[in-house]
């Protein structure tokens, strides 16, 4: 019995040494990380798209873990030209710039327009319908002011540790941004 006790004590002693050296290791790791955090890295982040890097490839519509995607088209009204014939709203070969379904570019009719005054129209995105396919973004960027662009909508985004869209984004447009400035809007809003 005596030898068994001694054996246990030695084992316990060694385990104690192991435990506190590992604890020290974790503490050191925490301090190392903490030093980095104090340099301003210690911030909560969210995912966001840089509209200037976005190539409108269409993967945002399919790659997101949510269905429909948490990426939506956003309209910066301050940049918009309020055109009657809108590169984001209308098909490129549209003859008459009206709201006829065959003339609309958006596959889900999520982009709506409203007459303001001759010849101006206001365009709005219905986020419940938008799938983030970027067809309108491409049209608006090619033929218009670029007031339509994709953004991660934070009321929907699950904020995955690795954004599934970011992993597939060909333009490396996705990045972690600080939570205090969660959007990258054109036209300098928010």
């Amino acid at each position: 019995m005596k030898t068994l006790n001694q054996n246990l004590t030695r084992r316990e002693f060694l385990r104690g040494i192991g435990r506190y050296s590992l604890l020290g290791l974790l503490g050191w790791l925490g301090l190392t990380l903490g030093r980095g955090l104090r340099r301003g890295k210690g911030t909560e982040y969210v995912w966001q798209i840089d509209p200037e890097k976005c190539t409108q490839c269409g993967r945002c519509a399919t790659a997101c873990v949510l269905s429909p995607s948490a990426v939506k088209c956003v309209h910066a009204y301050v940049v918009c030209g309020y055109c009657n014939l809108c590169g984001g709203y209308h098909q490129p070969n549209t003859k008459t710039p009206d709201t006829a379904a065959e003339n609309q570019l958006c596959p889900t009719a999520a982009l709506r327009r409203r007459f303001i005054e001759e010849p101006y129209y206001q365009y709005d995105v219905d986020e419940a319908l938008c799938i983030g396919c970027a067809k309108c973004v491409k049209g608006c960027g090619s033929f218009g002011n670029g007031s339509l662009f994709l953004q991660v909508r934070h009321d929907r985004c699950a904020n995955c540790n690795e954004c599934a869209i970011a992993a597939q984004c060909p333009g490396e447009a996705f990045a972690r941004v600080r939570r205090s400035r969660p959007y990258r809007l054109r036209g300098g809003v928010a």
């Binding site: 301050v78 940049v79 030209g81 218009g144 670029g146 054109r186």
Partner: peptide
């Protein structure tokens, strides 16, 4: 490059631009 191929319109009906 965008922005502003089309200048921002000058509305006459007192239209208030919505915020994004």
């Amino acid at each position: 490059e965008p922005p502003s191929r089309f200048p921002k319109p000058e509305f006459e009906t007192g239209y208030v631009q919505p915020l994004t």
